[in-house]
Design a protein around this nucleic acid. Structure first.
Lengths: 244, 244
DNA sequence: ACGCTCGTGTGTATGACATACACAGCGATG
DNA sequence: CATCGCTGTGTATGTCATACACACGAGCGT
């Protein structure tokens, strides 16, 4: 189990140890950058060993000299893209405002790189930037009187929600890029049989599932805000309960 | 755009129209069942056209006579597995209890078929069973005084959370099946530098990230309960606000 | 100067995968 | 009886990750 060549994690954490000059050859950083560019442009499926190598002017197999395999590339990509904005370093005294800022920043990152939610998970990603995100979120809760376990639970909850919301949003956006912008609402209206789905029928008739279709970006943010507000209300309830 | 052969959705929704006798040949139902069995046993990656066909005693290409392609198989699989338990038909008068029951049922389904969370999404799945789930969840909120849009938002929030939580749980479970049961905690403890991650350091020291490792199943349910309880508290806040 | 090893890039090969296409048998229907 | 359409098959193509053996050059100790 002892690794001679530096494995992905070692690479990530030991980055400061050796970064003297930009040498001409191939290296993990270049591979990562090319992979991210490909994913940004064409989704995660566009990331293949062959395409990465082609973009860098090397052969497919040359990549394996610097990287264990595709899984490691995914890990490096996740870390590369997860730089934490500096304004989160000093969380405000109001935990709710702090978590909102944190969520917005996370959301911005997720929307800028929609492929993140498609990366197959193999255990929790323990990269420097990921830990920084977690640390900053925990820091916003410092004055709440919650136990550390509760803080961890809250952070996990919010992060999980944002991730999932982004996944849904990406899925919808993809579907909406075709001709089916409002087709979903229509389809739903047609299928929502009042007999089998009475509650759903009511909701559809009330327009609860009408897709805005006009203001794309802004509304997307509101969608996500409804859920987040509910979650933060729930956290507030826990906090005031602990304070009593 | 007019389909001569029945496409996936038509198949799903027209199922009652023609289901007279179990004929000897291949059909979509058999394909779906085989695919689900494969996925249950070996994860979604184990589902390949070749393996499905082999299990049924046909050739790979024969599948395409009954199914458009793999994407449609995924859709059929999702629907096949998503039967809604009858006890959700009549939601209790207490919305919170109702949503908890609903969540438990959904959670049971997700844990029984861990591959569900790996299915790539291409638009929201509009299958009969999926709509039934949504309908039952909406029904639990009938006496809350929320608007239909708010109900839809709440349902989406809870469903999204469960899905994401299952995804995380599946990822952890997979990692834990190796030798790395407690390796995550250890790794985290080693990497959580007090300088760079002060808040995280505190949490780790307090044991907030210790993985139980003993009671696997039961604790998994508690993990998920913390987040759900927070969410339901948030929903309760919204409901009492609307009632005032 | 010689040979050695090691790091890096290459070419070729393998096996899995989804799926396009042309063909074959067979039952029903004109 | 001839034809058509449905179902199943075999063969082929292109993409993918990755194993393996080789090639070239830099640095080393002798």
């Amino acid at each position: 189990m002892d690794a001679k060549a530096p494995t992905g994690l070692d690479l990530l954490w030991g980055r400061d140890a050796a970064a003297p000059a930009a040498r001409p050859g191939l290296n993990a950083a270049r591979i990562t950058q090319a992979a991210v560019e490909l994913a940004d442009a064409g989704g995660l499926d566009a990331v293949s060993m062959a395409r990465i190598a082609e973009r860098l002017g090397f052969t497919t197999m040359s990549l394996y000299r610097h990287v264990q395999g595709k899984e490691e590339i995914f890990l490096l990509m996740l870390d590369a893209v997860a730089a934490v904005p500096a304004e989160l370093d000093e969380p405000p005294s109001d935990w709710r405002l702090g978590l909102q800022r944190w969520s917005l920043a996370q959301w911005t990152m997720l929307r800028a790189h929609a492929w993140i939610v498609d990366v197959p998970i193999s255990g929790p990603p323990v990269t420097p930037n990921q830990l920084t995100w977690t640390d900053r979120a925990l820091a916003t809760l410092r004055d709440t009187g919650l136990t550390e376990s509760e803080k961890a639970g809250v952070v996990l909850l919010v992060a999980t929600y944002l991730h999932s919301s982004a996944r849904l949003s990406a899925g919808l956006g993809e579907a909406a890029s075709g001709e089916s912008v409002a087709a979903y609402s229509t389809l739903l209206g047609r299928l929502a049989d009042a007999e089998r789905f009475p509650a759903l029928r009511r909701a559809v008739d009330a327009g609860a599932y009408d897709y805005p279709a006009d203001a794309a970006e802004e509304d997307r943010r509101l969608d996500h805000s409804f859920g987040l507000d509910r979650i933060l209300d729930g956290v507030a309830a826990l906090i005031s309960q602990r304070a009593s």
